[in-house]
């Protein structure tokens, strides 16, 4: 038993380490400070991924602005407000949304935002990512709120607090570290998404100038460079992958750091 589980663990960890070290080995060569701040240039002239890094951050910001408040509100509804069949139905829908392939979300946003506006935009990309975030944030928020002991609710109610003040003043603050963790994990998750951005944010070879224009992102840039026929772009795709991986790893480390303080 011990040796079997040890073997499985070894396999999984080895796979992960191979992926990480291979990306680092392939990517480190093309990495330079200039690469991190330049915008792309034609083949043979170098260029960088500065616009894509900025674009990814802008997309994360847009999706967080839409997705986090909505997701947290849904979570509060599921845990504190909703009862009976309606809450059950909402919970089922949220679970289903979590399982929707992200390309489907992309197509959906293409249909309801990109087509009517007649062009790709950062906004559409942000909305697509937000749609992926909402169910994740909603469920983690719900779980975290349910971990708050019932005795705290009763204690606040017994002091003459109305329900909404109990929720806002006692329950949500008590669950705040957990809710923040859920939010960070959702951000880490969507920062690696490519499919929903392909025909919403589309990609761009320039620094973003407006939320109403197509915008570059690390994932789409990696995709475009990886399928190109040029060796130089392949090398840049590896370097961009290394940057993306470091970004996601960084977010995860921050999450770990935040959760460590809980008791």
């Amino acid at each position: 038993m011990t040796s079997l589980t040890a073997l499985c663990t070894l396999l999984a960890v080895t796979a992960l380490l191979i992926i990480l070290s291979y990306i680092a080995w392939q990517g480190i060569g093309s990495l330079s400070f200039q690469f991190l701040i330049d915008s792309p240039k034609p083949v043979g002239e170098g260029g960088g991924i500065g616009n894509a890094i900025l674009g990814s951050l802008v997309l994360l910001l847009i999706s967080s602005v839409f997705g986090l408040p909505l997701g947290i509100c849904v979570g509060v509804y599921l845990s504190e407000v909703g009862t009976g069949r309606l809450a059950g139905a909402v919970r089922f829908i949220v679970d289903t949304l979590t399982g929707i392939p992200s390309i489907v979300t992309g197509v959906f946003v293409y249909a309801i935002i990109v087509l009517p506006m007649k062009h790709f935009s950062a906004l559409a990309g942000g909305v697509a990512l937000a749609l992926i975030m909402i169910p994740i944030v909603a469920r983690t928020t719900e779980e975290m709120l349910k971990l708050v002991p019932h005795s705290l609710r009763e204690g606040a109610l017994a002091l003459g607090a109305p329900q909404w003040r109990v929720t806002m003043g006692v329950i949500i603050p008590a669950a705040a570290p957990g809710i923040a963790t859920g939010a960070m994990l959702a951000i880490a998750r969507i920062s690696g998404e490519t499919a929903p951005l392909l025909f919403t944010a589309f990609g761009s070879r320039f620094f973003p100038s407006s939320l109403n224009q197509p915008i570059a992102s690390l994932t789409v840039q990696i995709y475009n460079y990886a399928i190109s026929p040029y060796d130089e772009w392949h090398a840049q795709a590896w370097a961009a992958t290394l940057v993306l991986m470091t970004l996601v790893l960084g977010i995860n480390i921050i999450v770990r750091f935040l959760t460590r303080k809980r008791f």
Binding site: P149, S151, L152, E154, G155, A156, A158, L159, G160, A161, P162, R165, G169, V170, P173, A174
Partner: peptide
């Protein structure tokens, strides 16, 4: 009401006592 199991809010000592006064 005071409950069987003590249920202080995860706030400071002062804020616990002030809670009822504030709300």
């Amino acid at each position: 009401m005071v409950f069987q199991k003590s249920n202080p809010f995860p706030k400071s000592i002062f804020e616990n006592v002030a809670y009822g006064l504030r709300i």
